[in-house]
Amino acid sequence: MTGVRVDALEVPGARLHCEVRGSGPVLLLIPGGAADTASYDGIAPLLAADHTVVTYDPRGTSRSPAVDPELAASVARLADDAQRVLEAIGAGPATVFGSSAGAVTGLELATRRPERVARLIAHEPPVTALFPDAARHDGGRLAELQRREGTPAATARFLADTGMAGDAPPPPTDDPAALETLARFAANLPGFFAHTVVAVSRYEPDIEALRSLGPRIVVAAGRDSAGQVPRRATEALAAALGTTLVEMPGDHRGFLGAPVAFAEALRPLLDGAP
């Protein structure tokens, strides 16, 4: 990781693994789901050409151990962690990009601490609480399945229920760093199903507070995500906010599959383009 500064940030009940690269205005990238900073290894170096790019492993995942992993289930607590990362960097209002559960953290951060967020790009936040049939998407069912039948069964059900079962899997690799990353992500899955999915599925964004921030909130989704649950939830959020949905390259994980194209599409959004 040439050119990457690695820090450990102590926060109440956890120690966060943080990575910083580049210089210029601060851009915070918040990982989603069972992922960590490595999910942004494709786009972070590109964006670091003119930004100070900050990433971190959310509490209870990978290299950010938590004293009590169950506390990681709170979206409010995860947003507080993001705020503390920004405070540690010494940033004024920063641009924030979050994907999936990371976008939910970003929404809560912008709601709770709007003075910290110059602009939020929320990429496919699965805010299924906005659905008329929200109860069908409650993550408690996946948590119970994981306890009863194990992580592989919960993973299969999650991919089927969200419509993402057909998304391209990571290509085969024998690269040690890539294998280490995949192993970390796999180790995060039990906590993802036990806690994160439940908290995110029950998260109700404060629409009025977010609407008051106007163009500072950008809602984005992958072009190839049509019909999938995260895309549908993102469409519902855009409609509730009265804003236009911005389409990005790829699917729910477009920044992984097409990092160059994704970074090129993301850059004007960071600079204030509608």
Results as ranks from 00 to 15, higher is better:
3 G>L: 13
3 G>S: 15
5 R>C: 05
6 V>F: 13
12 P>T: 11
14 A>R: 01
17 H>M: 13
17 H>E: 11
22 G>T: 13
23 S>K: 14
24 G>I: 11
25 P>Q: 05
29 L>C: 10
29 L>Q: 07
33 G>E: 08
35 A>C: 13
37 T>I: 07
42 G>P: 09
49 A>S: 14
51 H>A: 03
58 P>N: 01
66 A>Y: 02
66 A>R: 01
68 D>E: 12
68 D>T: 05
69 P>M: 04
70 E>L: 12
73 A>H: 06
76 A>M: 09
80 D>M: 10
87 E>K: 09
87 E>L: 09
88 A>C: 02
89 I>D: 03
93 P>G: 14
94 A>I: 06
95 T>G: 08
99 S>T: 08
103 A>I: 06
104 V>A: 09
104 V>G: 02
104 V>P: 00
113 R>V: 06
117 V>W: 04
123 H>K: 04
124 E>W: 04
126 P>K: 02
126 P>C: 05
127 V>C: 14
137 H>A: 09
142 L>V: 11
143 A>H: 10
143 A>P: 01
144 E>M: 08
145 L>H: 03
153 A>P: 00
154 A>K: 03
154 A>G: 06
157 R>E: 11
158 F>G: 00
158 F>M: 10
158 F>A: 00
162 T>R: 00
163 G>K: 00
170 P>G: 08
170 P>A: 14
171 P>L: 10
175 D>T: 11
179 L>R: 14
181 T>N: 07
181 T>C: 00
183 A>E: 11
183 A>P: 08
185 F>V: 15
186 A>G: 12
189 L>I: 03
189 L>Y: 07
195 H>I: 12
195 H>L: 15
197 V>K: 00
197 V>W: 01
198 V>H: 01
199 A>I: 06
200 V>T: 06
203 Y>A: 10
213 L>Y: 08
214 G>S: 07
220 A>F: 08
224 D>I: 09
225 S>R: 02
228 Q>H: 14
230 P>F: 10
235 E>T: 13
237 L>F: 10
237 L>A: 05
241 L>K: 12
241 L>C: 14
246 V>H: 00
248 M>K: 00
248 M>I: 04
252 H>D: 08
253 R>N: 15
255 F>G: 01
256 L>E: 10
261 A>Y: 03
262 F>R: 00
262 F>Q: 00
269 L>G: 03
274 P>T: 09
